[in-house]
């Protein structure tokens, strides 16, 4: 499969840059694949009619939120990550995830440091999670 999306470069990531909202639909199929892959069998994710999305999804939609129109250049390092969970989201609902660059600088060791602030909201604009993702960008 050829991926024709351009690489997301450090020069594309000035402070204040924001990305178009990612619509992330929480389907039971996605939840089941998550549970199989992670090995997490929490019954809250598969209760008929009341199942909620695993909070571990945040690790997935955070990254996707700034890579919808780009690919990640090889060699980057995820240095640190922080999550605040505010509300659960039910299976079948859609989250809207926005990412914004809040730090973009060259550090004392000449590493390209980028920090994203990522916010996920439900269909009714209820805040689901806030994420801070600290990366060392490759180029």
């Amino acid at each position: 499969m050829t991926d024709e999306k351009p690489e997301l470069l450090f020069s594309d990531l000035p402070v204040g840059r924001s990305f178009r909202p990612l619509a992330f639909q929480v389907t039971q199929q996605l939840v089941d694949e998550f549970m199989d892959t992670v090995g997490d069998r929490n019954p809250l994710y598969s209760a008929a009619g009341t199942s909620i999305a695993p909070p571990g999804f945040a690790a997935i939609y955070a990254r996707l939120s700034y890579l919808q129109d780009h690919t990640m250049p090889p060699g980057g390092v995820l240095a640190k990550q922080e999550f605040e969970f505010h509300n659960s989201i039910r299976v079948g609902e859609t989250m809207y995830v926005t990412a914004k660059v809040i730090e973009s600088r060259i550090d004392e060791k000449q590493r390209k440091r980028v920090t994203f602030f990522i916010e996920a909201k439900g269909q009714d604009n209820v805040l689901i999670s806030e994420i801070r993702l600290y990366a060392i960008w490759p180029k």
Partner: peptide, 8 residues
């Protein structure tokens, strides 16, 4: 991020 899923 898979490790983050494990922590969650």
């Amino acid at each position: 991020p898979m490790s983050l899923a494990f922590l969650n």
